[in-house]
Design a protein around this nucleic acid. Structure first.
Lengths: 227, 227
DNA sequence: CGCGCTTTTGAGATAACTCAATACAGGTGG
DNA sequence: CCACCTGTATTGAGTTATCTCAAAAGCGCG
C-alpha cells in the first residue's frame, strides 16, 4: 500500500542532513530487524524518532508509580509508533515479536522539508492513531470482558490472520498479562474469556498463543459493535 | 500563550483561497460565538475544519447502535477539537457552554502551505491530543470510581478553576450523564462519588454544577497518580 | 526429572451496576 | 404568586460482573 523504497530513501536523506535535498539513494537501509525482548525506547528517553512497523509486533506501555500498568497499544505491521509530545517519550516501547522497523526521524513528522510525502504519511498516521484511540475508549469504558476479548481477537484476525480452509489462524505473541493490561481486565478474566470462547466453539487454541477462529460470526456477535 | 491575531489571519487567508498567499489581514474574524445547545458537527458530516476553543466548553461524543455512548473528550479553552481521519467525522461535537471558537480549515493542518506556523501549532495539538488520550486510557482502565471523579475534578480545577481565598471554584457545565460517559461509569456512581467527596469535606457543591474544592491535597491523594 | 513461569480453574469478596424511590430546581400556566 | 410538571440529581437496596486470593495444570529448559 505504501512505497517502501521512497520511505527508506526519504529517511536516508534526513539522516544524511536536512539541507542535502538531492535525489533519494536506496543504499543505506534504515529498516532494521529487532529481536523480541529488545526495546526501542523507554519513558524519559529523548524522542528522536518515530517507528514504522513492517513486520513483527511492538508493545507500547505506560507504568504508574503504584505498579499499575497500561498497554497503550500493540504495534502491528503497518502501524507507526512513538509519536512524541514534547522532547521526551512518556511510554515504553518493547519488541514482543521480532520485528522489521523503519526508523523515521522525528523531523520527518514535524516539518515537510526533506520529503513532503513522508511528512504527509506520518501526519495521516497520527490522525489515524487519534481515531483508533477513540475507538479504544469505547472498548475500555463500555464493553464487557467477553466483548473486549472478542473485539481484540477480531482485530488481530483481520490484521494478521491467515486463512486455513474456512477458518483463520493467527498467533498471540503477547502474554495474557499484556492482553489484560490492554483491555483493562485481569489475567484471570482474560483467561476465563478465552476458555468461554473455546468451550462454545467460537475459537480453538492450539497453544495458548495460537488462535484458530472457528466461527467468525459468533466472534463478531460477541464483540457487539466493533464499528 | 498563542498569538490570536496570527491565527485568525492565517485562517482568513485559507478562507479566501489557498493560492492567495499574500500577507495576513486581520479584518475578517473566523472566531465566532456558539450558544450552548448548538453543535459544530455530527457523525458523518464532511470534516472540513478543526476547531480551537477560546472560551466555553465543547463535548465530543461517539454513540454506538445499541445506545452505548462514550464522551471522548471535553473541549476546554486551549483545546483543539475535530481532528479528521478520512473525509468524514465519526464523532458528534456539541457546545455545552457558550463558546468562542476559532475555525481552522482542515488544510491548515494537513499542509504547511498557507501559514506554516498554524500548521505547526495544529500538528503539535494533535500530538498533544495523542498524549492526553494515552493518559485517559489509564484512567478508564485502571482507576476506581472515586479516583476517576477526583482526577476529573483536578483537571477541571487546574484548567478552569478560579481561586476564592484558599479554595478553588469552577463550574461543571456538563451533566452527570456526560461525566459518567466520559469516565466509564453510571450516573449513580458519579453522583455517589460526588456525595462522598462532599461528606468527607474535600469539596462542596453550591449547586450540582458548581464545585468548590476545599481540600486540594485530599483530592490529589484520592486521584492516586494523575501524572 | 524437577524447577520456574505462564495459563487455567476454583471459590469467595466487592466495587460498580440496576432498578426504584425521593429530592431538587427551573419553567409554565392557572 | 404559587402549584404543578419535567428533567436532573441524589439516595437506597439488592444483584452481578469482575476482582482477589489460592491452587492446579501445562510447558519449556537446565
Amino acid at each position: 500500500m505504501y512505497v517502501t523504497l521512497s520511505i527508506e530513501a526519504a529517511d536516508t536523506i534526513t539522516r544524511v542532513g536536512t539541507d542535502f535535498s538531492s535525489r533519494p539513494q536506496a543504499s543505506a537501509h534504515p529498516q532494521r530487524q529487532h529481536a523480541a525482548g529488545t526495546h526501542l525506547f523507554r519513558e524519559g528517553d529523548h524522542a528522536a524518532n518515530v517507528y514504522e512497523v513492517k513486520s513483527g509486533v511492538l508493545r507500547l506501555t505506560r507504568v504508574l508509580e503504584n505498579g499499575r500498568r497500561q498497554v497503550i497499544a500493540f504495534g502491528l505491521p503497518g502501524d507507526i509508533i512513538g509519536f512524541p509530545n514534547g522532547d521526551l517519550h512518556h511510554t515504553d516501547c518493547d519488541v514482543i515479536a521480532t520485528a522489521e522497523i523503519i526508523t523515521h526521524r522525528r523531523s520527518a513528522l514535524e516539518t515537510s522539508e526533506g520529503d513532503p510525502e513522508t511528512h504527509q504519511r506520518l501526519l495521516r498516521a497520527a490522525l489515524r492513531e487519534i481515531s483508533a484511540m477513540q475507538d479504544h475508549f469505547m472498548m475500555l469504558a463500555r464493553k464487557s470482558a467477553i466483548e473486549k476479548v472478542a473485539s481484540f481477537l477480531i482485530v488481530l484476525s483481520q490484521r494478521t490472520g491467515v486463512p486455513i480452509g474456512n477458518y483463520t489462524t493467527f498467533s498471540l505473541p503477547m502474554s495474557r498479562a499484556d492482553i489484560a493490561d490492554f483491555l483493562g481486565l485481569t489475567i484471570e478474566t482474560v483467561s476465563r474469556s478465552f476458555s468461554l470462547l473455546r468451550k462454545n466453539g467460537t475459537i480453538a487454541l492450539e497453544t495458548p498463543q495460537t488462535v484458530l477462529v472457528r466461527d467468525m460470526q459468533s466472534l463478531l456477535d460477541l464483540s457487539e459493535s466493533t464499528d
